[in-house]
């Protein structure tokens, strides 16, 4: 590539990355401004104020809410990996009666926005006495519609797996389940990684479901808590809200930057290639 072309590519990339980076920059720097300075056009606060970061924890049980989001997302991720890898493997590699029709049945889950089923789900969980608990936010994603995408990704991956490997395993005396656990799953690490990322982010971002299912502040999740930083009369506390948003975003960003290679390459190898 010519020198000029290279400079052009770098210039294009640098301009294009502004809208991706600026919001995060603005969020973090503004969170150190006093509330009255939020709308001043400064890229750097006049004086750093740690007060908003402190207020985040006094206005709401924010640490608790953070822990809620984290443990729910981790549990959902672990559960989905189990459910989806088993179902994906069965749909891809095992022959059983009704396989195709059942796959179509399961796929309907991909097509149903959660807003469609939220009212009946609310009634069902209420009948089970599970309103204002975290169970709806855990059970539905693991077994219901959100895990279908994960199953689909796993199926697409297992289909591309060469059959000879499994044949060899079977000749060694491994049964189906053994082949799955000892041969197929270890090879599926990239796809499992992608499933883990998708699932974690999905759970981490859930907004409508917590609003509907949870009503106690100590049980809230982060997205729900973020919209609740107001003064006693519901006037917005912008700087506190931005501090909380920063705290929500930064740790995940750090984990991402450290593990970005696995992150991105895992995603790229999901068999979503087509």
């Amino acid at each position: 590539m010519s020198r000029r072309a290279k400079i052009l590519v770098y210039a294009a990339l640098s301009v294009l990355c502004v809208p991706f980076v600026f919001p995060t920059w603005w969020m973090v720097t503004s969170s150190f401004k006093p509330n009255a300075d939020i709308f001043s056009a400064r890229l750097w606060p006049r004086h750093l104020s740690l007060q908003p970061w402190h207020d985040v924890f006094t206005l709401q049980p924010f640490a608790r809410q953070y822990a809620n989001s984290l443990y729910i997302a981790l549990l959902v991720t672990a559960g989905t990996m189990v459910v989806a890898s088993m179902a994906g493997y069965a749909f891809a590699r095992i022959r059983f009666r009704g396989q195709n029709i059942l796959f179509v049945v399961v796929l309907t889950g991909l097509l149903i926005p959660s807003e469609v089923t939220i009212v009946p789900l609310f009634r069902m969980f209420n009948a089970a006495g599970l309103i204002d608990t975290h169970w709806p936010l855990i059970l539905v994603p693991i077994f219901g519609a959100p895990s279908v995408l994960a199953t689909f990704i796993m199926r697409q991956f297992f289909i591309t797996l060469p059959g000879e490997l499994e044949e060899a395993a079977r000749l060694d005396g491994l049964g189906r389940a053994g082949t799955f656990r000892r041969v197929a799953l270890p090879l599926a690490r990239p796809a499992l990684g992608a499933v883990a990322i998708f699932t974690f982010l999905h759970s981490w971002n859930l907004y409508l479901e917590p609003i509907v299912f949870l009503s106690t502040k100590t049980k809230f999740t982060l997205p729900q808590a973020l919209t609740q930083f107001t003064d006693a009369y519901q006037g917005p506390l912008w700087n506190v809200q931005l501090s909380a948003a920063s705290m929500t975003a930064i740790p995940v960003l750090i984990v991402f930057v450290l593990a970005q290679r696995h992150f991105i390459e895992g995603l790229a190898q999901t068999g979503l290639k087509g």
Binding site: V83, Q99, L121, M124, F143, A145
Partner: peptide
């Protein structure tokens, strides 16, 4: 095995999607 492997996902689909 096939049925057992898809059982959790299938049950979830029935309970949390189809019903």
């Amino acid at each position: 095995t096939g049925w057992l492997f898809i059982a959790p996902q299938l049950a979830g689909t029935v309970v949390f999607v189809l019903v």
